[in-house]
Amino acid sequence: MTNRELTVLAYELREKTVDVITGAKAGHIGGDMSVMDILVMLYFRHMNISPKNMNDPDRDRFVLSKGHSVESYYTVLAEKGFFDYETYRDSFSRYGSEFIGHPHNTIPGVEMNSGSLGHGLPVCVGMALAGKMDEAPYRVYTVMGDGELAEGSVWEGVMAAGHYRLDNLCAVVDRNGLQISGATEDVMSQEPLRTRFESFGWHVVDCAGNDMDALDAAFTEAKAEKGQPTVVIAHTVKGCGSPVMENRAPWHHKVPNAEETTQIKHDLEEKKEVVKHA
C-alpha cells in the first residue's frame, strides 16, 4: 500500500472506531483519532507483526502504553485479521465481554495488558534487552501519550534504554498537546521534550504525526539509527479528522451524540475522499 492508501485506510478505521465508541457509549475518542496514523503506519508498513507470526520469536513487539486508545488499536488489529471487527464492535465494553476498555492479552495480537500509564516503555526495555541477549532481529515499539510523560516510571525506562543503548527500541510520543484537564503545558509542562530525551542518550525524531510520509520517514530513520534508542515525537492533532473534536480537551473521552456522530463521520468521509482523489 502507498502512503496515500494508508492515509485513506486510517480515515476508514477512524470511522469504524467512532462506530465502536458510539455503540459502547464509551471510549477515548480524542486520542484514538490522533494516534490512528501512527498505528496504521506501524502495522501496515514498518512492523513485522501479523496473525500468522504471533508465535515467531523473531516477530516485532508492540505495546500500546497509552492503553486508553484501545478502540483505535483494536480496530487496527481487526483490520490486520487478528479478530472479527463486528464481534469486537458489538461487544466492546459490554457486560462479560473479552473486549474490555483497555488492552488485554487474551485478545489475539496483544502482547501486554496496559491501562495504567507509564508501564509500556519500561516493559519494552525488557523486551529489547531480551532481543539483544539473543541477538534477535526483532524491533520493539511502544506508543505513549504526551500527558503520560509525567509518570516517573517513564523516565526510569528512558534512562535504562539510553544506558543499554537499545537501538532495537523505538518509542513514539503521540504529542497532541492535550490531556484530560487541558493543555499538557498547563497541566505539567513537557518541553523541551527533544532535549529531555537527548539528554538521556536517545536519538530524537520530530515529525508531523498525522502525515504518513513524515511518519514513514521517521520510522525508517529510527531503524537506521545505531547505538541508541529512538523516540519519534509525533506532533498530532487530538480528535484528528473532524473540526467537531479537533484540539478540544473535553473530547478526551466524550462520546458523541447522534448529531455530532453524523457530523464527525461526514467530516471523516469528506477528508478520505479528498485524499483519495488528490
Binding site: G118, V123, L129, A136, G152
Partner: peptide
C-alpha cells in the same frame, strides 16, 4: 518500578 517492568518484558520474550 523499572526493575519489575523490565523483568516482565524479558519474560514476555522467553
Amino acid at each position: 518500578q523499572n526493575l519489575v517492568s523490565i523483568s516482565a518484558g524479558l519474560a514476555k520474550c522467553g
